[in-house]
Design a protein around this nucleic acid. Sequence first.
DNA 1: CTGTTAGCGCATTCAG
DNA 2: CTGAATGCGCTAACAG
Lengths: 341, 341
Amino acid sequence: MKARVRLPDRKSRVTLTEVAELAGVSEITVSRVLRSKGPIAEATRDRVMEAVRAVGYVPNKIAGSLASADSNLFGVVLPSLSNIVFPEVLQGIHAGLARTGIQPVVGVTDYNLETEEALVRSLLAWKPAAMIITGSEHTAATRKMLVESGIRIAELMDIDPVPIDIAVGLSHRQAGYDTGKHLIARGYRRFGYAGLDPRSDIRARIRFEGLVAALSDAGLSLQDKVLADVPSSTLVGSATTARLLAENPNLDVVVYPNDDMAVGGVFHCMGAGISVPENLAIFGFNGLDIGRALPKPLSTVRSNRFRIGQTAVEQILETSIRPDRPTVVNTGYEIFEGATA
Amino acid sequence: MKARVRLPDRKSRVTLTEVAELAGVSEITVSRVLRSKGPIAEATRDRVMEAVRAVGYVPNKIAGSLASADSNLFGVVLPSLSNIVFPEVLQGIHAGLARTGIQPVVGVTDYNLETEEALVRSLLAWKPAAMIITGSEHTAATRKMLVESGIRIAELMDIDPVPIDIAVGLSHRQAGYDTGKHLIARGYRRFGYAGLDPRSDIRARIRFEGLVAALSDAGLSLQDKVLADVPSSTLVGSATTARLLAENPNLDVVVYPNDDMAVGGVFHCMGAGISVPENLAIFGFNGLDIGRALPKPLSTVRSNRFRIGQTAVEQILETSIRPDRPTVVNTGYEIFEGATA
DNA sequence: CTGTTAGCGCATTCAG
DNA sequence: CTGAATGCGCTAACAG
């Protein structure tokens, strides 16, 4: 179902020509005044601006972009908006874009690579000046389109794979590994994991692998894991924790793919009379506000989503020419001790 | 600082003309095939599609839109992305837009009406097929631009004021009033309010007024309120609650502008050994996941942000002609009893 | 079923 | 400092 909406005539009536006639100058002069380009006599400028206001002229960027082969649109592709992490990235993008006159066109893939491909194709059709996309896992066709577009491409969140052009994020494998090392150092030995379907969140899977590697390097192994095949939420965190503990009452720490679920774990313990961290330690990922506000602040890994978005924009604006070698920006992370582990 | 980025030539090389030549047909035929418009011979279509793939043609919507006076962009103006409510609205918008081929161009105002004006001007320049904007409070210039654009305009969240074209949301005054009535019916008498600077969130202010009106109609009055002049967060909820209770230890219920802050209130009570709702009742607004996941589910008013966004899109797609009389869609709300009040 | 003609609204040359 | 001519890439309208 294609919805093509014919624009009303009313607005499209007012064009440069009309403004030009009213101001008694040529179209190009009006154009120059509006874009503050080239030398313009003070008097001319005033007359033009007056005419612009008089007729309520709104420039047509569609025409402008076609004529100049310029665009001030950025394509932005996110897997989801329900995971708070991505709105935060989007915030960072908006912050980076503020006062550049560039607008983001936002698409959501629902973690589906086919959807992503269709989205990229459709965003590319707007000839965006750059493309910001999540992750490095794409279909071959998506990759090809991105590469051949020639525009700057920023791939966000993960810096482990080699990017097409720019990667901004952190090493999720390392973060997972460090989580394991940290918890082992604090004396925990019987690890459980309450997570999600590994197909849905690739980066969570990579962190998980890092965690397992750390355990293995310490001669330990994960005692058990429970995976829910639904979107992440605090409620799911409670539920998976309950299931995990039912079968493994002797665990001394549970690791979660994110703070939402970890907070759910904390809530479960509150309700079940399990004292945290004495009876059970809880460890999340992200460093969300909600975790910090808990009576006992959640132990977690702080990433910085806002900064990822903002940095991506900064990197892109650095130069419009794609360099020969990829750029990788590590925005890092930080283990936050908190009080739950 | 205007960032104009020249598009690389590489991509713009491939145009309809090239595809047409390769397929041995005219440009318009290629155009028709790509848009599935008009009758096309099976054989022709195949040859064209093959040529399209061969050269990796990506249509240029900028040119297409200019030629057809069509656009499949929607302008979307939100006050913020840090308040989870607006990403949820955006989700609804994306859901409504799925498989229409329409993309949203998103702007964020930071609750600033001047910023909003600049944003609207700049979004309108892309000749969007419609505009979705938050609230009904705009500068005169913004209003004028929206009215004169002739396109469909949806104003979201609040349905109390008369909209330019379409309003989708709920009556915040009524929601505030009902909150008061509900809590009074449950026996609470000594009301406190822990909120935010009323200038930042207009709808929270209106709910507050409704609450006060309900109290007044019942012969009661608000005992005290504490307002924080910072963005909403769970942490701020804890802090304002602490301040409010320090000066009013006898309160029996505290109402909050939103669930984030109310959850902060619950956390404060947990930490301070105040039992909820026996010693103090807590009441929020929104119906967020986090509130439902608490060991004692948060008492609150459930609005439906996703549905607001989705409904707005549906209303807009209904017809591209702005009707003579405004449309108002009440997405409603629901008092959720929960266990904290 | 396909092609021809014309032009969308603007910005980029190049002249003056 | 300003203007005239030309074309961006595509599609509507009309032919055939």
